[in-house]
Each structure stands twice: as structure tokens, then as C-alpha cells.
Design a protein around this nucleic acid. Sequence first.
DNA 1: GATGAATGAGCTTTCATTCAT
DNA 2: TATGAATGAAAGCTCATTCAT
Lengths: 204, 204, 204, 204
Amino acid sequence: MMIETESRAQVRTRERHERILDAALDVIVSRGYQATAVSDIATAADTSKGGVYFHFPGKDAIFLALIDRSARLLRERVIARIGAETDPTRRLDAALGALVDVFGTHRRLTRLFLVETPGAGPRFYTKTLELHGDFIEIIAAELDAAVAAGTIAPHDTRLIAQAWFGAINEVVSQWAVDTSPHPLGESLPGLRGLLLRGVGMAVS
Amino acid sequence: MMIETESRAQVRTRERHERILDAALDVIVSRGYQATAVSDIATAADTSKGGVYFHFPGKDAIFLALIDRSARLLRERVIARIGAETDPTRRLDAALGALVDVFGTHRRLTRLFLVETPGAGPRFYTKTLELHGDFIEIIAAELDAAVAAGTIAPHDTRLIAQAWFGAINEVVSQWAVDTSPHPLGESLPGLRGLLLRGVGMAVS
Amino acid sequence: MMIETESRAQVRTRERHERILDAALDVIVSRGYQATAVSDIATAADTSKGGVYFHFPGKDAIFLALIDRSARLLRERVIARIGAETDPTRRLDAALGALVDVFGTHRRLTRLFLVETPGAGPRFYTKTLELHGDFIEIIAAELDAAVAAGTIAPHDTRLIAQAWFGAINEVVSQWAVDTSPHPLGESLPGLRGLLLRGVGMAVS
Amino acid sequence: MMIETESRAQVRTRERHERILDAALDVIVSRGYQATAVSDIATAADTSKGGVYFHFPGKDAIFLALIDRSARLLRERVIARIGAETDPTRRLDAALGALVDVFGTHRRLTRLFLVETPGAGPRFYTKTLELHGDFIEIIAAELDAAVAAGTIAPHDTRLIAQAWFGAINEVVSQWAVDTSPHPLGESLPGLRGLLLRGVGMAVS
DNA sequence: GATGAATGAGCTTTCATTCAT
DNA sequence: TATGAATGAAAGCTCATTCAT
């Protein structure tokens, strides 16, 4: 039953790992991926270049690990929010609100994978597609459920989900990049009206 | 009456200028901005590094000139398409179709400024906002006209335009990045239904 | 008897030649030789790079012509001043005053060949020796005359002339480089006392 | 009691630092500052460009560190020689001899800062003034002491020191640049006579 | 495990020089 | 004669990565 224990050393290793990713998030979000040197990350993580390379095979790997960790966190938050509802209609609505909300409350993570990732170069195109794809899947699943429940008419739910995600993405990205922004929440009602009505749901 | 003439030399200079931008488009679209060296552009333009630097003050300037030229072209095409209609309702519909269509028929330009520009680094964030802003303005103007004509109910047209653009952007970008894509046109009806219904228009 | 006439074209050529040297003096004195580009000279001379290369075979040649012209001018001024005296003792004194005076009233030329020339690189070492040598010869000649006239005791006049020139050079150079300098003339009495007494002359 | 120890690594770092400066001295003295590339220094130091840049922030910094080190060494030697005497008159005489001697026995260092530094460009003018100023101060201090002791009459000692330094500088520089020179020591008696007599001291 | 010195390929940019017009 | 577009050889500098300690 010692399954979940970790040795002292393992704990330290994992902590170092996390500390490096935290540092990488900081500097990459403020400078951009290309402009960030590995030594910047090392300094910010209070370690050395060699230390970074002990934990990660290279700069790309740090970035990939970082966006995976970030995407996972965002995804979990969104899924948790949706899971609180059971009725398909409300779940669909909740999904929309959850996305806007979660992105809005995690500005740096949002910027990381809505802005930095696509811009980090063609090497990461596939990753970008995957990341977006995950969220699109979440939306599509709710749309499918709503269709199955008869709440909305049949659609090409994959395409609709893509469009939803894109609409949210643009609004959120501009907000994330903008320097003097109003709260993102203000945009939710307008978006909600557009996207729900767009699939034929009545909007209160 | 010699107003519009150019000397032989001026013509050659302008041609070289264009040739460099054409070459830059080629290599930047296929490799990404950061991974593109000035010498790559020079080689592709069949000139030398020094030649490139004679025409442009630096790498950034090439990129900016390139995205300006590309954005202008796309914008003109879209505006021309919309201008063919006079009825506000049809213009709004036309705008949507025009965007999808123009982006779909200029894949490289689309990729350049929907994918490369945001990813070229924080230095270009402002430019990205501007570029997107231009197209959002176009959409917003048509939405405003439709509201004024009573075709659709009043909305926060700036936000709606942003969302429209984002929806189109995502669908188009995935298509632009995807390696084995179906024609983009197939996505239009679905998008059209979503976005027009979203603002309260009946969709045939 | 048409020996001294010049065709219109020759006049223009010579004027252009001079104009380029004037421009070169301007920019080299303010930026330094290495930091001066040929195109800087061309611009300052209100011509083109090709124009400059028509008149001079290369950048080095411009610099050499410039320091030759400058040195000649300074030398002529000094010689003229000395020539006004006939008594060997007064000539020696006049030489000293002339050097300080001429350098002091031609600050840019002075800087050019007391500061820029030695620093323009080993390529110009020989030239520097020559330039200094010319002035040292002038001094040595007057010293020799004074020795011959019995005004001063025999010395290694070449060495003394070198030292005189060096003393003047240092004082003048510091003055030429210094940003907020007193008039150079203030230094003359002190220098005069040192150098004349140094060769055994009584100083009033 | 471990105050003065250095770790093995620190020693190695300092040695590398010195090795780079040694190499820089070699190549700069033979080629001139501008004509020396960082990679030349790297090669001469048996390391790589990156290695050089690890120890110094840039080319200018190498040069500045080098002339500082060189000037310090020359200064120390001169001060040591003067310090061996106590009588003001003999100290003044010793200062003169020390300068000629030290410069004469460190030809490369002498060339570095009497010839290369002024010529390295306007960026280094201030440094040149400083370097010369240090030696001028040393001379001026001895002159002041001699004045205070009544050995010589009052003078503008700063100016006299400048002139002394200039005289020595010129003689030494010509010797340093000249390709087939006689020993510098031969020039000392002549200089000594000129400069000491110049301030009113009897010369044996 | 961690450090940081070292490597070296590669980048952007500059500029003396040439030459077709 | 004059122009300025073009060339191409450097140059200074950066940085991902390696590795002896």
C-alpha cells in the first residue's frame, strides 16, 4: 500500500520541475517564446541552465510541458463547471459561460496558448490544433447531447463547436492582449446571445 | 501629362521591392517568421542580403510591409464583394461569404496574418490587433447598417463583429494549417446559419 | 603662356574634389575615421557614392588626401609665421608660438592629424610618422640655425625637436579633445618657458 | 582564515580572463583595435567566440579592461621606481627616468595606450584623457613636491607635467612604431637635459 | 543532482566597392 | 561624369546545448 508515497528525492524533483514550469510561464508570457532564453527561465526558477536541462531535454520540451499543464488546468476547470449541471440545455449554456469565465480568470494561461502557442512557429502547429481541438471537443460533446435531447436541431456540431471556440477565442485574445481592458465578463451576455441563438436556442 | 510615368529605374526598383515581398511571403509562410533568415528571403528573391537591405531597413520592416500588403489585398477583395450588394441584409450575408471566400482562396496570405503575425512575437501584438480590427470594422459597419435598416435588432455590434471574425478565423485557420483539408466552402453554410441566426436573421 | 589656365571641366573636377575633402573633414572629425562610411562623405558632399569613387580610388585615399591637404595648410601657416622673423633666436621663439597658435586656430585640422590619424590603424602609422616628421623638421631646422648662430649650445636637435613637438602635441590634443576648454593661448607662456629654458635660452 | 583562498573554479575563471586579455594584447598591438575581430582574439586565446563573450560583455569591454590592466602595470612600475628615492630633486629626476625606462621596456603596452587607444575612436577619447591624466598626475605631484621643497621655482605644474608627458610620449611613440629602432635609453640624456633645465634645475 | 564555463552554428546588420544605366 | 542598386565578405553578438567538475 505504499503506492502513493514518494521518496524525499522524488518530491524535490517534482517540485523543481514545477518551479521551472512556473518560471517559464512567467517569462514566456511577458517576453514571448522566441525571445525567452533558457537562461532566463533558469534565472527565474532560481536554478542554473544545467539544472533546467536536467529536468527537461530542451527548450521546446519545456514549452510543450508548459502548455500541456496549462491546457489541462483550463480544461479541468471548464469540465468541472459544466459537470455541475445535468440538464443538456443548461450544460450547453454552462459550457459557454465556463469558457469565458475560466479564460477570463486565467489571463496568463490564456495568453500562453491562445497567443504564444500559435506564434511559436510551425513546429507547434500540430500542438495548437490539438489544444484547440480539446476544447472544441468539449463544446461539440455538449452540442451533441443537446441535439440528442432534442433541445436543438441537428447541426454539424464539430463545425459549430469550432466557430464557438473561435468566437470566444477572438474576444478573449483581444482582451488578453489589450492593455486597459474592461472585465471580460461584460462580453458574456452578447456572446451568449449570439452563439445560443445561432444554434436555435431561445435566450432569456 | 507625364504625371503617371515612372522612369525605367523607378520601375525596376519597385519591381525588386515587390519581388522581395513575394519571396518573403513564400518563405515566411512555409517556415514561420522567426525561422526565416534574411538570407533565405534574399535567396528566394534571387538577390543578395545586401540587396534586401537596400530596399528594406531590416527584417521587421519586411514583415510589416508584407502583412500590410497582404491585409490590404484581402481587405480590398472583401470590400469589393460586399460592394456588389446594396440591400443591407444581403450585404451582411455577403460580408460573411466574402470573408470565408477570400480567406479560402488566399490560403497563404490568410496563414500569414491569421497565424504567423500573432506568433511573430509581442513586438507585433499591436499590429495584430490592428489587422483584425480592420476586418472587424468592416463587419461592424454592415451590422450597424442592418440595425439602422431595422433588419436586425440592436446589438453591441463591435462585440458581435469580433465574435464573427473569431468564428471565421478559427475555422479558416484550422483549414489553413491542416494538411489535408476539404474545401473551405463546405463550412460556409454551417457558419452562415450560426452567425446570421445569432443576430436574429432568418436563414433560408 | 596658357600654362595656368584650366578648362571649365577641369575646374569643376577640382572643385568637386575639394568639396569631397571638405565633407570628409567634417564627418571624420566628428565621428572618427572608422565610423565614417563613404556614403556619409558622399551625402555631406552633396553627391553620390559613385561620385566619390570617381574622384578617389577608395576610402583610404580620401583620408590620405585629406590629411595631406590639412598638414600642408598647417605647415604653410607655420612657415609663414616663422618667415616673418630673421633673427635665429626670434625665429625659434616664433616657431614655438606659431605651432601653438596655428594648431589652436585650426582645431578640426589639428584633431584630424593629431588624434584621428594615429588612431586610424597601423595602415597609417607610416603616414603619422611622416606628418609629425615634417613639423619636427621645421623645429629642428630652427634649432640648428640657433646652434649655428651660437645662440644655444649644441644639442641632439632632432631629439629636442621631437620632444618639443610632443610637448605641444599633448597640450594641444588634450585641448582639442576636451569639451569645455580655456583658450589654448593661455598655455603658451608656460610651454615657452619650459621649452626655451630647456635649450638654454633666457626667457623674459 | 580562508579569506584569501579561491576555489579551483575561480582560479580557472580568472586564468581564462587573463588569457583572453593576453591574447587581445597580442592581436590588437599587431593589427590595431578596429582591424581586430573578436574571433581573432578567441583564436589567439585558444578558445571560442562564445567563450570570450562569456567573460566579457563585448569587444569594447575587452579593450577597456586591457588598457586598464596595462596602464595599471605601467603605473605601478613607475611609482615603484620613484618610490625608491626620497629627496624631491632626485625623485623628479627619477620620475623622468622611470617613464622612459618603463615605456621602453614594455613596448607593446606602450604602443597599446599611446597609439592604439587614442586611435580606437571617439568612443575612447575620455579613456585616453584619463590614462594620460594618471601619468600626468604622477609627474605633477613630483613637480609640486620639488616646488614645495624650494628645489625649483613655482610653475603651472599641471601644464608642465602635460608637456613632459607629451615630450616623452612622442619620443617613445616614434620609437615604438619605428621598425628598426635604436635603444630608447639613448634618448634619455637629451630629454633629461631639456625637461629638467626647462624647470630651472641644474643638469649634471 | 546542480553548476556554469565553453562551444559553435547561425543571426542580423554594415559597408567598401563595382558597374549598368 | 554621376547615380544608386547590387554584391558579398565580414563583423559583433546570441543562445541552445553539452559536459567536466
